[in-house]
Design a protein around this nucleic acid. Structure first.
Length: 587
RNA sequence: GCGGGUGUAGCUCAGUGGUAGAGCACUUCCUUGCCAAGGAAGAUGUCGCGCGUUCGAAUCGCGUCACCCGCUCCA
């Protein structure tokens, strides 16, 4: 008798956090010193799980492909990289809070207002209560001082002044186009404070501004910054990709949802470089268009950015399916309004967590924005030379060339976001293109490893209520991790520990498997309890050495073991000589 | 950064001013022929941290840190 337990999301998360700590998946960083917000450590099982996920990604993204190579770049890089990428500007939003309601605003997004400002110097109240805190209120033109007084009274009441009588502010002061007051109630906002999400540090001992550097807020920029080196040293040809796994750091205002949004996290990113659509058109005579149900299994020479983008969404989906997340994925296609000005398309792959459906990976078509930015800021060319393109372009008539240019100019003119590129720049770009040179465009599948680890744990977490023969209720916790990513692949047990023959044989089986996969040997407590311990750790297989193994039930069962499957409780009789192959076929 | 909540053993939690507790987990031994069995013994705590009030603080006050929820933020 068992039944699935459905609990509310908060309780569900608490249970997952508790299991993670109890079994050694995830601990709070620096816990003995009271912890540090937004940082998490991985314990023995968590480290194995994360390593398995990381290796599954690496294998899928580069080792099993001919067209992707790897990179391992530093966390601290030249600060100008972050100027070129836009992070220095866009990662520092000025924020201001309403002094009355504490509501927070992006200081540069508050609606412009005009009106009369009444400035109060403080307030006195009953029982000698008073405040010297200055406060100001903006009221619409023509409105009386009383409406400002009303807001000011609320403000001073919050500061423990009883029946406050605000002082000062006898006459209003005309103000135009200000962002310093809350549009909802007129109350003064705090001074804008910058919130830069990049961690700063200093390179060298002097710690002056000239030595300031940032911890990378994403791994992608290192790939762009090293693009030319990889291209020149790796015998790769566009289309090809560079992938990287590494730590990134963001000084989040509010880390939340366990490891989902933390300040130090690990990213797995691919930058897949493709030819501009115009180059594809020149070489192939056309750019294939995507339509529902298009065959995405094998990349084709006539693919433009759109099909490449679809291809990578498909590839990434298959990856998630291969580690057991297939049925909890959702997709969000960003609308033209959502998109950053340089992005052509972006799809978020979302995953169901107890706290909601949240982003696991973003797959963006970013054009040539990043490489062009680095080309501009570094003054080093990021162009590649494409011989096929040069030869194909040489065969074009002047009219055909002009037609391509006109098509692009028309597209620029009808662009939804940003300024159209000036005609002279477009013509210069085509001039280079016809000679076979261009800055590659890029498709960027960018995934978070820590959220992936959390996603698979949350997906695998399962509780059932069991009632035993005595009517005693028990909650059974099983982590149904996909065998491919499970931290421990098999538990090895002697049926009984007081029988030396069983123990010796079990140690032998353990030694045999241990060279090939992470295993766990356990001889304490009843066999059922040992199965249950491994169920909680997500171990997919339990291997028990019993009396049949010793040949007590006849020679045909000698040197066979019981293999018990975590999810079904099914048992199989497997020869020790075939055990390794049997397991490997299922991982 | 603001507001609310929480913080006691590895985990879940009880303990409202007077000797620090329970269940599970853990260690050792016995027992145990397949799904968290039983018995015996044992170890485990700066009661998140600091300051204060008090003869005496896990308990009351102030501060602080962390986590959760809600705002806000998330190129």
């Amino acid at each position: 008798m068992s039944a699935d337990l459905k609990t509310d999301p908060i309780v569900q998360m608490e249970k997952i956090v508790s299991l993670c700590k109890r079994r050694g998946f995830i601990y709070q960083s620096s816990e003995i010193y009271g912890g540090i917000g937004g940082f998490w450590d991985y314990g023995p099982l968590g480290a194995e799980l994360k390593r398995n996920l990381r290796e599954a990604w690496w294998r899928t993204m580069t080792r099993e492909r001919e067209d992707v190579v790897g990179l391992d770049a530093t966390i601290i890089m030249h600060p100008n990289i972050w100027k070129a990428s836009g992070h220095v500007d866009t990662f520092s939003d000025p924020m201001a809070d309403c002094l009355l309601t504490q509501k927070r605003f992006r200081a540069d997004h508050v609606d412009l207002q005009s009106g009369m400002v009444f400035k109060f110097t403080g307030a006195t109240g009953d029982e000698g209560s008073k405040s010297d805190v200055p406060f100001a209120v903006l009221v619409q033109p023509g409105k009386p001082r009383e409406s400002a007084l009303k807001v000011a009274k609320q403000f001073y009441e919050l500061r423990a002044v009883k029946n406050p009588v605000p002082t000062g502010g006898e006459t209003g002061e005309k103000v135009e186009n200000t962002r310093a007051y809350n549009p909802e109630n007129g109350a003064q906002l705090t001074e804008p404070r910058p919130f830069n999400l990049m961690f700063r540090t200093y390179v060298g001992p002097t710690a002056t501004d000239a030595d300031m550097a940032y911890l990378r807020p994403e791994t992608a920029q290192a790939i762009f910054a090293q693009f030319k080196n990889v291209f020149d040293s790796s015998r790769v040809k566009v289309p090809f990709g560079i992938c990287q796994i590494g730590k990134a750091f963001r000084n989040e205002v509010t880390p939340k949802n366990f490891t989902f949004r933390s300040r130090e996290f690990e990213q797995m990113e691919l930058e897949f470089f493709i030819k501009p659509d115009e180059a594809v058109e020149i070489i192939s005579g056309e750019v294939a268009q995507w339509s529902e149900g298009a065959d995405l299994t094998e990349p084709q020479p006539n693919w433009g950015w759109q099909l490449w983008h679809r291809y990578w969404v498909d590839q990434r989906t298959k990856f998630y399916q291969s580690i057991g997340l297939g049925d909890v994925l959702e997709y969000y296609w960003q609308t033209p309004d959502d998109l950053a000005h340089y992005a052509r398309a972006c799809v978020d792959i979302l995953c169901q967590f107890p706290f909601g459906t949240e982003e696991l990976e973003g797959i963006a078509a970013r054009g040539d924005f990043d490489l062009s930015q680095h080309m501009k800021h570094s003054t080093k060319t990021q162009e590649v030379f494409d011989e096929d393109l040069k030869n194909a372009a040489a065969k074009l008539t002047p009219e055909q060339k002009e037609a391509l240019i006109q098509k692009r100019l028309a597209a620029e003119a009808s662009k939804a976001k940003g300024e159209p590129t000036p005609e002279a720049d477009v013509r210069a770009w085509f001039e280079r293109l016809f000679k076979g040179s261009y800055v590659p465009h890029v498709i960027e599948p960018s995934a978070g490893l820590d959220r992936l680890a959390l996603a698979v744990i949350a997906k695998a977490f399962s509780e059932t209520e069991k009632v035993d023969e005595k009517g005693k209720k028990e909650v059974i916790t099983v982590l149904r991790l996909h065998p491919r990513i499970a931290p421990i692949k098999a538990g090895v047990f002697p049926l009984l520990k007081n029988k030396p023959e069983l123990v010796a044989k079990a140690r032998e089986v353990y030694a045999l498997l241990k060279k090939h996969m992470n295993c766990f040997y356990d001889e304490t407590a009843s066999i059922g309890r040992r199965y249950a311990r491994q169920d909680e750790a997500g171990t997919p297989f339990g291997i028990t050495v019993d009396f049949e193994t010793l040949g007590e039930k006849g020679p045909e069962l000698q040197d066979t073991v019981t293999v018990r499957e975590r999810d079904s409780n099914e048992q199989h009789r497997i020869k020790i000589s075939e055990l390794l192959g049997w397991l490997q076929a299922r991982l």
